[in-house]
Design a protein around this nucleic acid. Structure first.
Lengths: 399, 399
DNA sequence: ATAATATGTTTGTGTATAGAACAATTCATT
DNA sequence: AATGAATTGTTCTATACACAAACATATTAT
């Protein structure tokens, strides 16, 4: 068997990615999207079906003239594992092609897990799922979403301040512990990617994703449909945008960072809450008539606005997606940020920006991390090098 | 003639781009760079030669074992026109494949040119060159570098504050006046591209270019080898990064912009100069022992540092290229910016950044603008739809 | 002078895509 | 209910393209 042409690999990749992103597409739609000949699409889909990457179902009569086109679905048996260590838990997920979270296990920890502990927890949970995985899934790998600076090339966590990790080669550790290929990246970057593909930013080519959590503000930037990686994959740290002269010193060493001026803990405190549930916080803040609370909300929106106008001037995005308590802040006063952008950002870019609240909720990190492990697979669904066992098409066969 | 395969177009594009960027490459080098078979490269180069895109010369005996490989050069007869309107002049250039500026005509204006005037000047100069162009060149089109917000999709200048232009469809105007297809973009973005391909940032995939001129600070960002465009091509406005709480109001509507805190005019004033020659300014500043001058230089470097640390955190670039008086500032105290970045930017990204001074000088805008017009050509050097149908056939045949 | 090395050149082969002809399936019309 | 129009799947064929192998050529090393 000689090596297939690159064009075949390209086209298989294109089709697989389309099905993965859109969920379901008819063969006719795929023909139009790709611009390929319908006979070619037929051949390619045939190959993907025999590879177990997609499966076809009888066409759903849509009331269209002409012969109905069969629907092409991503095979749920192709899946990736996702791991997300946080300060109080390690979450492990199983995500199938098409972005469906099949399984999510949150393992709560007594204290902040070390890198070794996080890897041990993840590999233990995966070991437990192993027989099921081997029987019913084709696992493309493990993706890890880490709250910190992660070198995407080698999977080393350079610095995760809130976890207290420094120079931890987590990807290699987890790969050695499980036998699966493993990749790691910044959590917010992966969140951006997930929201781009499956969430609030679906269909946009340029978006800024900002997530506010207990441990700070993370960001991810999509430009021209591509996640901004930078030289080593560190790009996207919008939480450390300068927003105030004379601000407090941030743990990053600088002063006046967005992350130090806009923080969830101050809001929780004022709202009289101790735990960081976003819904509770939003309730408490919305029902509060305290001037102190309102002032703080306004103050934080002001600084968030400065960071966003910077970002808008620099990136000219179509959309800004706010997650976590940043979504809460925006929901409390939806006109504030829009107003800041219109008055302070430059004419051209400001006019087009839409601000959304994140759509994917708690599945976000799983989907984003899995995307990391899907990437190689999507680039070469036929698996030139890896002759992995081919699984039969799933049983959901319609007559 | 049936339509060639996309793979052929791809490979021709790849080879042409390599030759364009590197200037001269032997066929053997092209074989290695592309990974194609040497027989394939032979065929492709043959086609490009017969198309007049490249030409070959006898190998220069390099002292290597083996049969010498002929050198492949970009044909100087393939060229693009470049136009750069400024507040005191309109510059028109002729740039050939390989980035060589064949001709540069600076047309000084009594006052700031309107869009119509700039177009008239450019088309008059081009009309004068017309017979030479028709006789000796194959013109791929016109690229226009405008100091302001330019919508890259339709070539409309949204707002060029220093020229006083608003919503001027310059690309269409110039295209109608000359009959050549025309594209327009922000000048600094094009500068970034030029420096990436031919200048100080050559070979880098992630760089930030910042230019300081009489009319402010412009920026361009290259990420993963690609210029950041944003939704409408407005991306890159680093001159309007927030660097100071309580700063003066910028013409953009916001306060505390980099451009208002760091400006050439203040430096010229302190140095006792009236004209904005970069070399003179550098001389004057370097030889000054006035505390006032030193303080101002330090102050401006401080704010520039804040903007750069933001940019470094967000983009994780390999290099920062400073042009115009920003290059001067950096040259006066080379350790200042590096120090700021090391102490204030985040560990991971900060460690790798190198700060360079721009290399291309006054040819920069010509090369960058021409690149705009080369882009379509490079994507399809064989010219499938030979009539570069960016516009409906212009009917300005009256001549 | 001969060998070794690297590269251009020619020819044949396999792969992948497009296109044409035909079959299948639905909606619209009479 | 029957026929026609529209759309898409299916099969077969032709063609373009890249690669590999064999051979030719030009340079350095011995």
């Amino acid at each position: 068997m000689s090596e297939p042409d690159p064009s075949r690999r390209n086209n298989l990749s294109l089709l697989t990615s389309l099905v993965h992103h859109h969920g379901v597409l008819s063969r006719a739609q795929l023909t139009r999207h790709t611009g390929l000949n319908r006979s070619t699409v037929g051949t390619l889909i045939g190959q993907l079906v025999s590879l177990g990457v997609v499966y076809e179902t009888a066409p759903a009569g849509e009331g269209q003239v002409g012969r109905p086109s069969p629907e092409v679905h991503p095979s749920p048996s192709v899946a990736a594992l996702a791991v997300n260590p946080e300060i109080d838990a390690v979450t492990i997920g199983l995500v199938s092609l098409g972005g469906k979270v099949q399984k999510k296990i949150r393992f709560e920890t007594e204290r902040i897990p070390s890198a070794r502990e996080a890897v041990n927890i993840a590999s233990a949970v995966i070991a437990g799922m192993r027989s099921e995985l081997d029987a019913s899934y084709r696992i493309t790998g493990i993706g890890m979403a880490v709250p910190g600076l992660v070198n995407r090339d080698d999977g080393v966590v350079r610095h995760a301040p809130h976890l207290g990790w420094r120079n931890e080669p987590v990807a290699r550790m987890l790969s050695e512990a499980t036998g699966y290929p493993c990749l790691a990246a910044n959590d917010a970057s992966l969140g951006a990617e997930a929201e781009l593909i499956f969430g609030a930013g679906a269909g946009q080519g340029n978006l800024i994703y900002l997530n506010g959590g207990a441990s700070g503000i993370g960001g991810g930037i999509i430009s021209d449909g591509q996640l901004l990686r930078g030289a080593s994959g560190y790009a996207g740290e919008l939480g450390h945008t300068f927003v105030r002269t004379g601000g407090k010193t941030c743990h990053c060493g600088a002063t006046g960072c967005l992350e130090t001026e806009v923080s969830q803990s101050r809001l929780l405190e004022l709202a009289g809450l101790t735990r960081g549930d976003t819904a509770d916080l939003e309730n408490a803040l919305a029902n509060s008539s305290s001037a102190e609370v309102n002032d703080e909300v306004a103050r934080q929106l002001l600084y968030l606005g400065i960071a966003l106008r910077n970002a808008v001037n620099i990136f000219n995005p179509e959309a800004i997606v706010l997650d976590g308590f940043l979504g809460t802040l925006h929901a409390l006063a939806p006109t504030s940020l829009n107003g800041t952008l219109l008055s302070q950002a430059m004419d051209g870019p400001a006019g087009q920006v839409k601000i959304y609240r994140a759509a994917l909720g708690s599945d976000l990190m799983m989907i984003g991390a899995a995307e990391l492990a899907f990437a190689q697979f999507l680039a070469d669904p036929a698996g030139i090098g890896t002759t992995t066992a081919i699984l039969p098409a799933p049983t959901s066969q319609t007559g």
